[in-house]
Amino acid sequence: MTDFTDLLDGYQRFRTSEYRRHRERWEELREGQSPRVMVIACSDSRVDPAQIFDTVPGEIFVVRNVANLVPPFEDDASRHGVSAALEFAVTQLEVPEIVVLGHGACGGVAASLSQRFKGAPNGEGGFIAHWVDMLDEARDRIVAQHGGGAEAVHALELETVRVSLVNLLTFPFVAARVEAGTLTLHGAYFAIRDGELHLMDENGRFVPA
Rank of each mutant, 00 (worst) to 15 (best):
M1I: 00
T2W: 05
F4R: 06
L7C: 10
D9Q: 14
Q12M: 12
Q12C: 07
F14T: 05
T16Y: 09
S17T: 15
R23I: 15
R23M: 09
E28R: 15
R30L: 13
G32N: 12
G32S: 12
R36W: 04
V39P: 04
I40T: 00
S43A: 10
P49C: 06
F53Y: 12
G58A: 13
G58Y: 11
V62P: 02
A67V: 06
A67D: 05
A77S: 08
A77R: 11
S78G: 04
R79F: 04
S83F: 01
A84P: 02
L86N: 06
L86K: 03
V90G: 05
L101M: 09
A110N: 10
S112I: 07
Q115K: 15
F117G: 11
F117C: 12
A120E: 08
N122P: 00
V132G: 00
D133A: 14
E137Q: 14
I142R: 04
V143D: 02
L156A: 10
T160R: 13
L165Y: 00
N167R: 09
T170A: 02
F173S: 08
V174G: 05
A176S: 13
V178Y: 09
L183F: 01
T184C: 08
L185W: 00
L185G: 01
G187S: 02
I192S: 02
R193I: 07
H198V: 08
H198L: 15
E202N: 09
G204E: 09
R205D: 13
P208M: 01
A209F: 12
